[in-house]
Design a protein around this nucleic acid. Structure first.
Length: 592
RNA sequence: GGUCCCAUAGCUCAACUGGAUAGAGCAACGGUUUUCUAAACCGUAGGUCGCAGGUUCGAGUCCUGCUGGGACUACCA
């Protein structure tokens, strides 16, 4: 069937032509605000210049023409420069009947018209456990991947693990010195937490040595450079790079602990990856590229032998891409891995990096260099930049211990949800295992929705002293709405596959028109890489559904057609909520 | 010093990308259950959209300046 927007677009174009002899390409329509009567609104201010008429006059003239010539339009009203147009219930019923039994409503199957997109997210360091900032990264990446798939694209979810470097050696060194052979098994600690403990231990020892050196008259800078543990740590990194078997073995063992730990957290968060990359394999990439760049005169050699690029024309600075000793810097390997990925997947159309906005500058530089090197796909690289999660007293800092640990937070969410489920009268008939399963679903929904409902670009605040809500604009509220849909449909126990056409109650109409826009909401959220748009829409749907529940009796309704329609409407609400929540990575329960 | 981001109700967030009287939730106060799930619904109260200009039919949204906060600006990763 033809969409409402398309129908109105054509009708309004024709009307403008007929009444004012105007040819307009783009008509901008918006949903009518709920204080006014109507479904869609045309802003007529835009045409005052061309027609030399007053906005009210244009509204009246267009409205009258549309009413006379478009059967689907049954009413209009003009308020100042706004022409509010109402479509017939018959039109809405036609739309409703065309989608009401589609379980895939709003989701596009992946087909040849879709792109192939690699989306990188998570990308943890293997020296400490995950915290709330990583949770935002993981939830955002997983959700955007699902949303892009729902828009018909093929998505390769990639995780580039930062598994080598000086920071990893810090944990290793501290474990060698203070560990006494401690393992996850012997300590009962989750692997990533055990390794994190030694990362902190290193920092403590390092700080103590610095303090001693400063006390003996050394400058702060020199103390940082010459503290024995730091020197030992750098030696450990050299040994690793030289392939010293003992060091490599320790590195393997400790990273293994961390992967086991991360695996547990990833599972709780419900995130997964199609492709794992490890920096230990990729950190040397990009060196040949430097030669290529020199040959193309994109890079230049400085007097001291280092290689750089001048980006001052783009408002960026000079950037070193190779040190004077011939070793690469971080951006060198980023350049290398990007190129490697397009080689590995020739069908790749787009490469998305889910990384915090503190690296905005880095990605500007990276993409700019790729562009200058002449890679045509450089313009298809995108930095999915998100804001930091802040605590009431500022940013989280691992070293200062001001972090909200991911595992602790998840556990806390489960516990809060468990108490709520256990105390609920409605859930008395469930056994312990069922309550636990439901608590996990609800607790995780509260956490995920809390994170994803905020525009990714914006920084967000988390107060550890205030628990995440379960009432109001929350994940559990939307889950509850879904459980209500299941409950009434189960009780009704009747077949829904008959088309009816009824006169709509205002609440039914509002709910129906909101459900109508679900597919375009998914498109928009995909276009903007923004799950919050879906989250907010699901909240609107749920809120309206609950008002409908209150205003419109379903099983008690005596008119069979109306009753059937209401059940079908409930069913479509359930579909929209379930499909939308899946895109946020949130499961929906059939009872709660 | 330079570049970029942010500032909306007591708190956490919206505002369909320039449209109508800036909306929700939490917290506060009041009401709704012999009727499909009260994790719900309805109501009251709460605003100089950081400040000052500008652009135009129209600005929370765009441009300039200012104030306040943050990030980045390594031959670190």
């Amino acid at each position: 069937m033809i969409s409402a927007e398309h129908l109105l677009n054509n009708a309004i174009k024709t009307a403008l032509n007929a009444v004012y002899n105007l040819q307009i390409e783009e008509i901008s329509l918006q949903k009518t605000r709920k204080e006014f009567e109507g479904d869609f609104t045309l802003v007529t201010f835009a045409y005052t210049r061309d027609t030399r008429k007053k906005p009210e006059e244009i509204g009246e003239a267009l409205g009258a023409y549309l009413l006379a010539n478009t059967p689907e339009i049954v009413k209009y009203n003009v308020v100042k420069g706004f022409l509010n147009i109402s479509l017939s219930d018959a039109f809405w019923m036609l739309f409703f009947n065309s989608v009401r039994s589609s379980a895939q409503f709003g989701l596009k199957p992946s087909d040849s018209s879709g792109k192939t997109i690699m989306l990188e997210y998570s990308s943890p360091n293997t020296n400490k456990p995950l915290h709330l900032g990583h949770i935002r990264n993981n939830l955002l990446g997983a959700s955007v991947a699902a949303i892009l798939q729902a828009n018909g694209h093929k998505v390769i979810k990639a995780n580039l693990v930062n598994d080598r470097g000086i920071h990893i050696c810090k944990s290793m060194l501290a474990w060698q010195r203070f560990g006494n052979g401690e393992t996850p098994q012997s300590s009962g600690l989750k692997g990533d937490h055990l390794v994190g403990k030694y990362y902190v231990a290193f920092d403590k020892a390092y700080k103590e040595e610095q303090a001693q050196l400063i006390a003996s008259g050394m400058s702060k800078e020199d103390a940082e450079k010459s503290a024995p543990v730091m020197l030992a740590c750098q030696e450990l990194l050299r040994q690793w790079e030289a392939g010293n078997p003992e060091v490599v073995q320790l590195w393997r063992t400790m990273n293994g602990w961390v992967y086991d730990g991360f695996g547990v957290t990833y599972k709780e968060l419900g995130v997964s990856f199609d492709k794992m990359y490890y920096e230990s394999n990729t950190y040397l990439l990009g060196k040949e590229l430097v030669q290529e760049g020199l040959a193309k005169s994109v890079f230049y050699k400085k007097e001291n032998g280092s290689v750089a690029i001048d980006l001052s024309a783009e408002g960026l600075d000079e950037k070193i891409v190779l040190r004077s000793d011939g070793t690469s810097v971080y951006i060198t390997q980023d350049l290398g891995t990007a190129i490697e990925r397009f080689k590995e997947f020739p069908e790749l159309n787009q490469l998305i990096y889910t990384v915090g906005n503190e690296q905005d500058y880095h990605f500007k530089v990276l993409f700019s260099i790729l562009q200058k090197l002449g890679y045509s796909w450089a313009s298809e690289c995108y930095h999915l930049s998100y804001g930091m999660v802040e605590l009431p007293d500022g940013k989280m800092k691992s070293r200062e211990g001001t972090v909200v640990d991911a595992d602790d937070l998840i556990k806390e969410m489960y516990e809060t949800a468990f108490l709520k489920c256990r105390d609920s009268e409605k859930l008395k008939h469930l056994n312990e295992a069922e309550i636990k399963e439901l608590s996990k679903m609800v607790g995780m929904a509260a956490l995920k929705y809390f994170i994803l409902k905020v525009d990714p670009k914006k920084k967000m605040l988390f107060d550890p002293n205030e628990s995440v809500d379960f009432d109001g604009n929350t994940g559990p509220f939307i889950q509850y709405s879904y459980a209500r849909t299941r409950s009434v449909l189960d009780k009704a126990g009747m077949a829904l596959d008959r088309n009816v056409s009824i006169t709509l109650h205002p609440t039914e109409k509002e709910l129906l028109t909101t459900l109508y826009s679900f597919p375009s909401v998914i498109e928009e959220s995909g276009h903007l890489y923004n799950p919050a748009i879906i989250a907010n829409h699901l909240y609107d749907v749920s809120k309206l559904f609950n008002r409908f529940w209150h205003d419109c009796p379903i099983l008690k309704e005596e008119n069979e057609d109306v009753k059937l329609f209401r059940l079908q409407l409930v069913n479509l609400c359930g579909t929209v909520i379930a499909n939308g929540m899946r895109l946020l990575g949130i499961e929906v329960p059939s009872r709660m």
